[in-house]
């Protein structure tokens, strides 16, 4: 019984790992998107100045 509940905890941990890793990936992508937006804004400003 103890081993079975331990296995269940490990199973839950393993399943969570997937979504933690995917969430980390999406966060990094979100960061990249905001950086690209900033780059685009800067480019627009320099185009206006020109």
């Amino acid at each position: 019984m103890e081993k079975s509940s331990q296995a269940l905890a490990y199973l839950f941990a393993a399943y969570s790992v997937i979504w933690i890793i995917i969430a980390i990936y999406l966060l990094i992508m979100g960061e990249k998107i905001s950086r690209l937006r900033k780059d685009l804004e800067n480019l627009e400003e320099s185009l206006k100045k020109k």
């Binding site: 081993k3 079975s4 296995a7 269940l8 490990y10 199973l11 393993a14 399943y15 997937i18």
Partner: peptide, 10 residues
């Protein structure tokens, strides 16, 4: 046992 279910995403 139940730990085998890890295979479905591993």
């Amino acid at each position: 046992g139940i730990i085998q279910k890890i295979f479905y995403f591993h």
